[in-house]
């Protein structure tokens, strides 16, 4: 009878291979985390789009103009009617805060990390003299996990 024994090194190497093989299985637990991240960004995008839609209602009709794709970045973006300046606790425009690294680092970092942008697709429709509307497609895009994601919201802006 010839019984072959297992050496200690073989056991250790076998354990190591087992652990390495378990890692992909265990990464499944990360998928729940990714779902939360996705919903965070989607929720943010929904609020963004809603904000734009409300601002569109307050803007003069002729000022509602197209912002073509790929869209305007929100962080470090120019002054527009929607996001910049974002707030102003002072009594003059000199105190206005914009979404920049210096003034709103937290918000800026979040927006830059996912490269949030917004675009507007504007179509003018004249039903009759004095009866005009704009069909505005609000497109919010961002990057997540190497993918380009998009949320769209359509709104109709009357000329009142």
């Amino acid at each position: 009878m010839n019984r072959r024994a297992v050496s200690f090194v073989e056991i250790v190497i076998a354990l190591g291979i087992l652990i390495v093989c378990m890692v992909p299985v265990l990464t499944m637990f990360g998928s729940a985390g990714r779902a939360v991240l996705k919903s965070q960004n989607l929720g943010f995008a929904i609020g963004f789009a809603h904000r734009i839609s409300q601002h569109l209602l307050a803007m003069p009709f002729e000022s509602v103009t197209e912002v073509p794709l790929p869209g305007q970045p929100v962080a470090d973006g120019p002054d527009d009617e929607f996001f910049n300046p974002v707030s102003n606790f002072g009594t003059t425009g000199a105190n206005a805060l914009r979404i920049t690294k210096a003034q709103t680092p937290d918000l800026w970092a979040f927006l830059r990390k996912y490269e949030f942008r917004y675009a507007l697709i504007v179509n003018n429709v004249n039903f009759a003299a004095g009866d005009r509307m704009k069909c505005v497609g609000i497109i919010i895009t961002w990057k997540e996990g190497g993918k380009d994601l998009l949320y769209k919201l359509y709104t109709y802006v009357p000329d009142i």
Binding site: F44, G47, H50, R51, Q54, H55, L57, A58, V86, D106
Partner: peptide, 14 residues
Amino acid sequence: HLSSGGVHALDAVY
């Protein structure tokens, strides 16, 4: 503009 723990929400109402 609401914020807490690095999470932000920007919205508006007309």
